[in-house]
Structure formats: structure tokens, C-alpha cells
């Protein structure tokens, strides 16, 4: 029962769009006729329980899995057939589930890997400065092996690594996963800050409370289908969301 009306509709000037996307793993139908529309400058959150296709959505955007049918549009161009490296070059950049830093490379080398598709030069230095300003701790630890960091520190590096790609769209897969509440707050503040500086954000979250507190809009996924979408406010009010994701009982 998709919501009708303003917030549920399409973004006026979408940066990323899914049009009727179906993704399979063999016989497993992981995404079923999915439509998303992420506007420029928005924070859009994708909510849903375990194994409903959230990470598959991210992998479909990055081109690690390919949709069987349907179109993925980025900046007005169909990208579903492009290789992952080309998508990164166009500014679609992931912050991966469970961070996935390169554990036996230094933090600095991890940041360099973020900038893999770019040339060295003043822009690289500017972005490095930006990351170090945002995360002074990352700067302090830059020659330490990434595998030796705490989970929270790793998340900072993972976000920094994404910024090094000079992203137009950051796709975050559960940025709060496994972090202490203090770090979760911090990470969400930083996501908001990055968004204010002009980067569009598409964020998978199980922590619906936190996600809806910073997102402009959200989609709810259930067994591979979008069952609900709307503005963050609309969804916070929605009884089904309150019960299923915000941990409140219906009275």
C-alpha cells in the first residue's frame, strides 16, 4: 500500500533512479520491480529488515550485480550496463556494509584507494585536507594499519575513503552497524554535514529511528519489494513503521 501524494512521489530532479528494476541471484528474486528516485542534494534512507534486498540495492547501484530487467539512471543516463569502475568515475561511491577497509593497508593507503579513479594533484590534496578536517583522528592515525582500528574509527575511515573519490552520490550500507550509540550519533552528524556540503546520500539502515531523524525521504523494502515510501515525517507517523521499525507497540 504505497502512500499517495507529495512525499511519496518522484523527486523533481532525480540524480539516481531505479525504473522497474529486477535483480536475481540465480533463481532467487532479490529485487522485485523496484522503483527509487533520489533527488539532488537529498538524504534518502532505505529501511527494511534482514535479507530484504537492501545490500542488493547498493550492489545493483554499484554494478557488482546486474539487474535482469529495468533501468538504473544516474544523472539522466542509463548506467546499468556500465562497469563498476566507470560508475565510480562518474561519482557514485559506496560506504560498504561492515566498512570493508583493506585491513593490511595503512589508513592513508585506504584513503588513496578511495581516490583510485582520480589523478593525483591539488584536488586530491584538497579532498585529503577535507577528510582530515572532518576526522582529525584519521589524520593522527594515518600510518596505522586499518585492521587495527576500532569499529568507530574504521567507519570514519570508510566515510573518508568515500569522500576521497569526490562523490556526487554516496551509497551507505548500514553506517551505524556495530557501533556504540555515541559513535552512531557522531556518524549521523557527519553524514548530515557531508550532505550540507552538497553530496547526495542514499543510506541503507536498520536503525530506522536514527535514519528518519536525518533523512529527507525514505523507502521501505520488504522481501525485495518497495512497500512504502514517503517523507521522513510521513514515515515516522506511519503506524506500520512505528510498530515494525521504531520499536513501538500499536495501542
Amino acid at each position: 500500500m504505497p502512500l499517495e501524494g507529495l512525499g511519496a512521489g518522484l523527486a523533481a530532479d532525480p540524480l539516481l533512479e531505479f525504473r522497474g528494476v529486477n535483480t536475481y541471484y540465480g533463481d532467487m528474486h532479490a529485487l522485485k520491480d523496484v522503483n527509487y528516485s533520489i533527488g539532488r542534494g537529498e538524504i534518502v534512507s532505505l529501511l527494511g529488515g534482514n535479507a530484504c534486498g537492501k545490500s542488493t540495492t547498493m550492489k545493483t547501484i554499484m554494478g557488482v550485480v546486474r539487474p535482469t530487467t529495468g533501468t538504473v539512471m544516474f544523472d539522466g543516463v542509463a548506467i546499468e550496463k556500465l562497469p563498476t569502475s566507470e560508475r565510480v568515475r562518474r561519482g557514485i561511491v559506496p560506504v560498504l556494509e561492515a566498512r570493508r577497509l583493506f585491513p593490511r593497508m595503512t589508513i592513508y593507503e585506504n584513503l588513496e584507494m578511495g581516490a583510485y579513479t582520480r589523478k593525483r594533484g591539488p584536488e586530491f590534496d584538497d579532498d585529503l585536507d577535507r577528510v582530515y578536517t572532518l576526522f582529525p583522528r584519521v589524520k593522527e592515525r594515518r600510518s596505522q594499519l586499518a585492521g587495527t582500528l576500532s569499529g568507530g574509527e574504521q567507519q570514519m575511515v570508510a566515510i573518508g575513503r568515500a569522500l576521497m573519490a569526490h562523490p556526487r552520490l554516496i551509497c551507505m550500507d548500514e553506517p551505524s552497524m556495530g557501533l556504540s550509540p555515541l559513535y552512531v550519533e557522531q556518524v549521523f552528524d557527519i553524514i548530515q554535514e557531508i550532505n550540507r556540503q552538497g553530496t547526495t546520500i542514499f543510506m541503507v539502515e536498520q536503525n530506522a529511528n536514527m535514519a528518519l531523524s536525518i533523512a529527507h525521504r525514505a523507502y521501505v523494502l520488504q522481501t525485495g519489494q518497495v512497500v512504502l515510501s514517503g517523507t521522513a515525517e510521513e514515515l515516522r507517523e506511519n503506524p506500520m513503521i512505528r510498530e515494525a521499525y521504531l520499536g513501538e507497540m500499536q495501542v
Binding site: 554499484m62 557488482v64 562497469p83 563498476t84 569502475s85 565510480v88 568515475r89 559506496p94 560498504l96 570493508r100 577497509l101 583493506f102 585491513p103 593490511r104 593497508m105 593507503e109 588513496e112 584507494m113 578511495g114 583510485y116 579513479t117 575513503r161 573519490a165
Partner: peptide, 23 residues
């Protein structure tokens, strides 16, 4: 070297390396 680092990154986590744009 850039390519050498890409090699190490791929050895440590091929999927993550691919999503950094490594071919």
C-alpha cells in the same frame, strides 16, 4: 605504485577493491 596497491587491495578484499573502481 598505484597498480601495486590495487593488487594488495584486491588480495585483501576483491569486492571492495572493485567498488573503489579497481578493474
Amino acid at each position: 605504485t598505484k597498480l601495486g596497491k590495487a593488487m594488495r587491495a584486491t588480495a585483501q578484499d576483491a569486492e571492495a577493491a572493485r567498488m573503489m573502481g579497481v578493474e
